[in-house]
């Protein structure tokens, strides 16, 4: 009950934000908020595997970045009129979000399925290291792509259009990002409460028992991992629009680590927690960097203390209920 109330208040705040900021002549912050929402979406997606599924993926940056690249590359080809694929059929770029964003989710999802298919054969620490190593592999492959800028990243010309409507300006993209986030949270919460989610959680708590009950644990996990990767890719597409730029930095292990920190900081296994965690972490980074050049010296120990002594995360403090993680 209290959790629902907290979520509703949070939603109200996010809905009110554009009007309040506009009234205060601080519309600039809306762009910052959009970036937070995109990361929140990715962090919530990670929570699906990390919190509910107990799979500690250290490679979600790869899916986030891949999604960003797909949206960016499609816009890039659209703007210079070149072909993405010239043979056997010519496929050009597109600015239409209804095509580009599902494509981003699809490509990231396929990548997640491939990486998951190998990684999920293992458990525990193996899984952590393998997802990390595969993400590194994707990172280096992207760096080597000369046509899309390599380390320079890809300048994204303009933004996507949504069903023909422009997304230029701060507010339209903010609303879209918020809508996607709310939709995913609603979908995620209901799925996790349904049979799929129950089986996933059951497999995390006692894999042997789940197997004995006839739960196809491997396939279940692979499905969750793929879904999570796809949603992270969608978040990447939003991020590409927000910053008009795609950087391989999004695929780096630091980004993967940051996503994990967001989930834990907010509270794993709650889906709402990671959203709060993403907003809190990005705000803390900004604030600390404003205080000192050596802000990492504050952020590092602070994170350490959170992990050591404050395990539940922020959300349970507000919602009064621990997550399912």
């Amino acid at each position: 009950m209290r959790e629902r109330l907290a979520a509703a208040i949070g939603l109200c705040l996010l809905v009110a934000a554009p009007f309040v900021l506009e009234a205060m002549d601080e519309a600039f912050l809306l762009s910052v908020l959009t970036r937070m929402l995109a990361y929140a979406l990715a962090a919530a997606a990670l929570d699906l595997v990390l919190g509910y599924g107990g799979m500690v993926s250290f490679g979600h940056g790869a899916f986030l970045g891949t999604g960003a690249y797909v949206a960016g590359v499609l816009l890039h080809h659209r703007s210079d009129g070149s072909a993405l694929v010239a043979w056997p059929v010519r496929i050009g770029g597109t600015a239409e979000a209804l095509i580009a964003w599902p494509a981003a989710a699809l490509v990231s999802g396929l990548l997640a399925a491939a990486i998951g298919a190998i990684s999920l054969r293992t458990r525990g620490v193996h899984f952590i290291m393998i997802t990390l190593a595969f993400a590194q592999m994707v990172f280096f492959l992207v760096l080597a792509l000369p046509q899309y800028g390599g380390t320079d990243g890809l300048m994204v010309p303009g933004r996507n259009v949504l069903a023909g409507a422009s997304l230029e300006g701060d507010a339209p993209l903010y609303w879209v990002a918020l809508a996607l986030l709310v939709a995913f949270l609603a979908f995620g919460r209901s799925t996790m409460a349904a049979r799929f989610g129950l089986a996933l959680r059951g497999a995390r708590m006692n894999e042997r028992r789940a197997l004995a009950l006839g739960v196809p644990v491997y396939r279940l996990r692979l499905a969750a991992f793929t879904l999570s990767g796809a949603v992270a890719g969608l978040a990447g597409a939003v991020l590409a629009n927000q910053s008009s730029f795609v950087s391989p930095d999004l695929l780096s292990w630091q980004r993967s680590g940051e996503l994990m920190v967001m989930v834990i900081l907010g509270g794993q296994g709650t889906l709402f927690g990671p959203v709060l965690g993403a907003i809190a972490l990005l705000a803390a980074e900004e604030e600390l960097a404003a205080i000192t050049e050596h802000w990492m010296l504050i952020l590092g120990p602070a994170l350490l203390l959170v992990v050591l002594f404050f395990r539940g995360g922020l959300w349970p403090l507000i919602a009064g209920k621990r997550g399912d993680g």
């Binding site: 990390l50 500690v56 250290f58 525990g124 620490v125 952590i128 680590g257 994990m260 920190v261 834990i264 794993q268 050596h294 802000w295 990492m296 010296l297 952020l299 590092g300 120990p301 602070a302 994170l303 350490l304 992990v307 050591l308 395990r311």
Partner: peptide
């Protein structure tokens, strides 16, 4: 393992900045 990863990740940030200082 998740807590271990995060705690030691925080240590990396701290050590890198500490060495720079």
């Amino acid at each position: 393992h998740l807590d271990q990863v995060l705690a030691t990740y925080a240590l990396i940030l701290t050590f890198n900045e500490g060495v720079k200082v």
